[in-house]
Design a protein around this nucleic acid. Structure first.
Lengths: 166, 166
DNA sequence: TATTGTTATACTCTATAACTATA
DNA sequence: TATAGTTATAGAGTATAACAATA
């Protein structure tokens, strides 16, 4: 039973939400200059990056995939469309707002990737490429695990609301 | 060379900042109800949690440890002090704003920990306790790695500013 | 002169509810 | 009636610069 038993460390350093936040903070800071030089915010970049992997996506999919709430996405669509980086795409279901990258959007995406690639490789080299892979796998699996927990508890208690305010 | 070679996955699913964001999002969502029932925001909670591990901490340390900018921390201090959860502590250096948990603050901290513990254990069980440990270690080491990279590049180019806006 | 923290300010993101339009 | 998205709005976080107090 090699449990470190250091309650203090376990409580702060080993708090999962806090560890995720702090890791994200330094990582984001590392790559943010590449976005700022193109006048892109992180959420805008997530949208471009998601679109780069697909022909076209609707707002609901992008909201889920990029962790952006619908009202924010509406504004992001407006900004990116005005700048000519994305464009709306016809869709059978007229309710859906479906968008794709324009040529300019694709070009900017490639530029950012190219410019930030050396930093990414430097990080991979410093951290260890195989450990980085492990970390990414664990992160994606953690998400699946937690999401499964959420669905499960919703089945058991569809009307949860956990605890009353105050 | 068993590299999946799936460019699409590598680009989005394997983007480190995005993976960290998405994992944090679901994890935060899982624990947020326990904070909301005590009218605590996540940043407020991080401050309480950091203080629970130490007798007293100054603003600078808390800002770094909890990833909160000084102006936000000022407001958080005000809120938590008004509610009697933290209190200022005398300090040799009069510039420093040093705070500690009050008894009420400690009590609320313990309450939240107790209430959320079952969910934490459920997550650990579902994900695998040893994998959770691995993940936490990797996250903390990633932070160290990136921070070291930042310090290094500052030495090399103390006057960076990366790229001009527009 | 450097450091610590606060104030001021602007902008973005977060979150919810209400509304419009399509299906 | 249910779904997709927008609008409206309030609140919280993010970020910078300017300032005050202390070292």
């Amino acid at each position: 039973m090699p449990k470190p038993a250091n309650t203090e460390l376990r409580k702060f350093e080993k708090s999962l939400p806090i560890a995720l936040l702090r890791s994200r903070e330094v990582t984001t800071r590392l790559f943010k200059p590449f976005l700022e030089s193109h006048d892109l915010t992180m959420p805008q970049w997530r949208v471009l990056r998601a679109l780069a992997d697909a022909d076209a996506l609707d707002a609901k999919t992008l909201a889920e995939r990029c962790v952006i709430l619908p009202p924010s996405l509406t504004r992001i669509f407006r900004g990116l469309t005005q700048r000519g980086l994305i464009a709306q795409v016809e869709c059978n279901d007229a309710r859906r707002h479906m968008v794709r990258l324009t040529e300019e959007g694709r070009a900017m995406f490639e530029e950012v990737v190219e410019e930030s690639e050396p930093t990414y490789l430097q990080l991979a080299a410093a951290f260890g490429p195989e450990r980085l892979d492990t970390l990414l796998d664990l992160l994606n699996e953690l998400r699946n695990t937690v999401q499964a927990m959420g669905e499960q508890s919703e089945e058991e208690a569809p009307l949860r609301k956990v605890a009353g305010r105050r």
